[in-house]
Simulated assay, not measured.
Amino acid sequence: MELPLSEFSSAGSLEALCSLLYPSIEEDVEESSCRGPPSSATVGPGNIGPSLSPEPSTVPSTENMIDKKSIWNDFEVTEGAEFDDTLDLREQPKYEILFKQQIGTEDMFLGMTRKDTSTACCDQMVIRIQLPGIKASEVSLQVRNRYLDLRTPQHKLGLHLPHPVDAKNGKAKFVSDTETLDVCLTMVRDLDFINFF
């Protein structure tokens, strides 16, 4: 049995159709809540049934890490911030960060490992620092997991490293011909043993 189109054009029948498609919990719902999703929204299997309230995000509590007598706590201070000194007027030397990776014939010709030319596949970081007019004996260098601190009588460099490194097993080489210091550090990433071997 077909109903004429004029029976569905009244406001009451549209509200009844809307209440069938989008049932509400309360009976006295305003007309605006019966309009349903916006016209640009797509309806899929996730729209069937009552809407789920989002789960509250679990933020790790810092109450156990807080020392009430301290001005600030360790987790609030970035590594290397203790070396920042705005009153030190020594100039910052020019530097560049290079990435190295060790590959073998199985990588180069056979492609047996998943290494490619991106920095994600590199295993060493080289920081090349230009120190004109400086001798190797005048350089003071300290490396932490994510911070490099270099001091000379004329220069000061506090560098936050882009990746965590193995601070205990780095190498530094001063090249007197070019007056540069090359600091070679091994990067430490948690999933390298899964991704590249």
Rank of each mutant, 00 (worst) to 15 (best):
G46S: 12
I71R: 11
L87S: 15
E63V: 07
N47F: 07
K68V: 13
F99A: 00
S70C: 14
P54T: 09
D67G: 00
D107T: 04
F75M: 03
D85H: 10
G46I: 03
A81K: 10
M112P: 00
M65E: 13
V43M: 06
I97N: 00
Q102F: 06
D107M: 03
D107N: 10
E106N: 08
W72N: 13
P93D: 05
L98M: 10
D88E: 12
M65K: 12
F109Y: 14
Q101I: 01
S53R: 05
R90I: 01
T62W: 08
A41G: 01
S57F: 09
E55V: 07
V43K: 02
Q102I: 12
Q101A: 05
A41Y: 06
E96S: 14
E82T: 12
P54V: 06
S57P: 01
D107W: 00
E79Q: 13
T62L: 15
E76R: 07
I103Y: 02
D84E: 13
Y95F: 15
N47E: 12
G49K: 04
K100P: 00
F75S: 03
I66G: 01
S57L: 14
V59C: 02
N47H: 14
K94M: 07
F109Q: 11
G80D: 01
I66T: 15
E55K: 06
V43I: 14
K100H: 11
T86A: 15
E55Y: 02
K94H: 11
N47L: 07
F99I: 00
T62M: 15
T58M: 06
K100L: 09
V59R: 03
S40E: 08
S70P: 02
I66Q: 08
S61H: 01
L87I: 13
I103G: 01
S53C: 03
T62N: 13
Q92G: 04
L89C: 13
E96P: 00
K68H: 11
G44L: 05
D88Q: 06
P50Y: 03
L52N: 09
P50M: 07
T78P: 00
N47M: 08
M108Y: 11
G46H: 07
N64E: 15
T42D: 04
G44D: 09
R90S: 03
F99K: 02
P45L: 11
I71N: 06
G80A: 08
G111V: 03
L52C: 10
A81F: 10
F109P: 01
K68Q: 11
K94N: 14
V77M: 11
Q102E: 13
M65Q: 15
V77H: 05
F83P: 01
L110K: 09
I97T: 02
V77E: 11
P50C: 08
S40A: 07
P45Y: 04
T78R: 10
D107R: 01
G49T: 04
V59H: 03
F99D: 00
S40Y: 12
S61R: 02
A81G: 05
F75R: 02
P56W: 04
M112I: 12
P54F: 06
S39V: 11
K100G: 02
S53D: 04
A41K: 08
W72K: 12
E63R: 10
Y95R: 00
D74H: 11
G44Q: 04
E63D: 14
G46M: 08
E96V: 07
G49W: 02
L98E: 06
L89H: 14
K68A: 14
R90K: 15
L89V: 12
E63S: 15
T86M: 11
